[in-house]
C-alpha cells in the first residue's frame, strides 16, 4: 500500500529533500535576516523613529526612491518598446541584441559603476556632449538615475517580452475585422493585455534600483543631503561603528522590499489571470 502514502506519490526522497531545503534556507537566509529584526528590537520606539527620520536619512530616501521611480519610468517606456521590437519585427542582429539585453544581469555592478562614471564624466564619451549644454550627469542625482536605468532595464523587457509573444494573432485580426484601425487595436486590445506585465516590470525595476549599491556609488558623487543613497548611508554608519543606526535604516529598507515583493506577487497573480 506504499502507493497511497505521500499523496499518491511513488517518487522517493521527499523527506530528505524538503528537510535539507528548509535547513539550508534557515541557516543561510531566515536566521541571518531575523538578526536584523532582533537587533532593531533592542532600540526603543523613540530612538528608532529619530534614527530613521533624521534629516540626512530622509534626504537619502528622497534621492533613492525618487531616482528609482524615474529610472523605472524610463525603463517601462523603453523596455516595452525594446520588447515589442524584439518580438514583432525582424532586423539584422536581432538575436545578438536580444542576448545583450541581459548584460546588466551579467556585468558586475562595480564594472558598470566605473564605466558609467567614465562615460558620463565631463570629458567622457557622452559627458563631453552634455557638458556644453550645462547638463552635469556624473556625480549628481542624474547620474544615480542613469545607473538605476542601466541595472533595471532587463526587468521590464524580460517581463513584457513573453506576454507579447503569447498574444493571439486572432485577437488582433478580430479587432481589424470589427473595423478597428491599428491605433485602436494597440490602445484597446494590446495595451490592456500588456499592462499587468508592464506594472510588474516597473515594480521589479524600482525594487532593484532602491537596493542597488555597486553601480551607483561611483557615479553618484555621494554628497550628503544631495546625492547620497540609503544603502551607502547604511555602510557609512557601519564604518562609524554605529551598528544601531545602520540596523534601524536597514530595517526600514527591508520592510520596503517586503512591501514591494507583496505588490509584485499580487501583480503577477493579476497578469496570470489575464493570460488565461
Amino acid at each position: 500500500m506504499k502507493l497511497f502514502k505521500r499523496h499518491n506519490n511513488v517518487l522517493p526522497g521527499f523527506g530528505l529533500s524538503i528537510g535539507f531545503t528548509i535547513f539550508y534556507l534557515s541557516v543561510i537566509v531566515l536566521i541571518p535576516l531575523s538578526s536584523l529584526v532582533f537587533r532593531t528590537a533592542g532600540l526603543t520606539w523613540g530612538e528608532f523613529i529619530s534614527t530613521v527620520t533624521a534629516p540626512r536619512v530622509m534626504a537619502s530616501y528622497k534621492v533613492t526612491f525618487g531616482a528609482a521611480i524615474i529610472a523605472a519610468l524610463i525603463n517601462s517606456i523603453f523596455g516595452v518598446l525594446v520588447a515589442w521590437v524584439l518580438v514583432r519585427y525582424r532586423f539584422p542582429g536581432r538575436r545578438i541584441v536580444d542576448a545583450l539585453v541581459d548584460l546588466p544581469f551579467a556585468l558586475p555592478t562595480a564594472v558598470a559603476g566605473i564605466t558609467l562614471a567614465t562615460i558620463y564624466s565631463p570629458n567622457g564619451w557622452v559627458g563631453r556632449y552634455l557638458e556644453p549644454h550645462g547638463i552635469k550627469a556624473a556625480f549628481t542625482p542624474f547620474g544615480i538615475v542613469l545607473a538605476m536605468t542601466f541595472i533595471g532595464l532587463p526587468f521590464v523587457v524580460r517581463t513584457v517580452q513573453p506576454v507579447i509573444e503569447e498574444i493571439e494573432v486572432e485577437l488582433e485580426e478580430a479587432a481589424v475585422c470589427l473595423g478597428a484601425n491599428r491605433r485602436q487595436t494597440l490602445q484597446r486590445i494590446i495595451f490592456p493585455m500588456l499592462l499587468p506585465s508592464i506594472l510588474t516590470g516597473f515594480a521589479l525595476s524600482f525594487a532593484r534600483g532602491v537596493g542597488e549599491y555597486g553601480s551607483i556609488i561611483f557615479i553618484a558623487g555621494n554628497m550628503p543631503m544631495v546625492s547620497e543613497i540609503t544603502p551607502l548611508l547604511i555602510i557609512t554608519k557601519l564604518e562609524q561603528f554605529d551598528y544601531q543606526g545602520a540596523t534601524a535604516i536597514a530595517c526600514v529598507m527591508l520592510l520596503t522590499s517586503f512591501l514591494m515583493l507583496l505588490v509584485i506577487n499580487l501583480l503577477q497573480k493579476w497578469s496570470r489571470r489575464y493570460a488565461e
Binding site: T21, I22, L25, V29, L30, I31, P32, L33, S35, L36, R39, T109, A207, V210, G211, E212, Y213, G214, P231, L232, I234, I235, L238, Y243, A246, T247, A250, M253, L254, S257, F258, M260, L261, N265
Partner: peptide
C-alpha cells in the same frame, strides 16, 4: 510560501545581505 522565501534574497539590498552577517558574526 516556501517558493517566496527561496526568492527572498533577490529582493534584499546587497548591502543588507552583508550587514546581517556582520550583526551575527561581528
Amino acid at each position: 510560501l516556501l517558493i517566496t522565501l527561496i526568492d527572498l534574497p533577490f529582493s534584499v539590498s546587497p548591502v543588507i545581505s552583508g550587514l546581517i552577517y556582520v550583526l551575527i558574526f561581528g
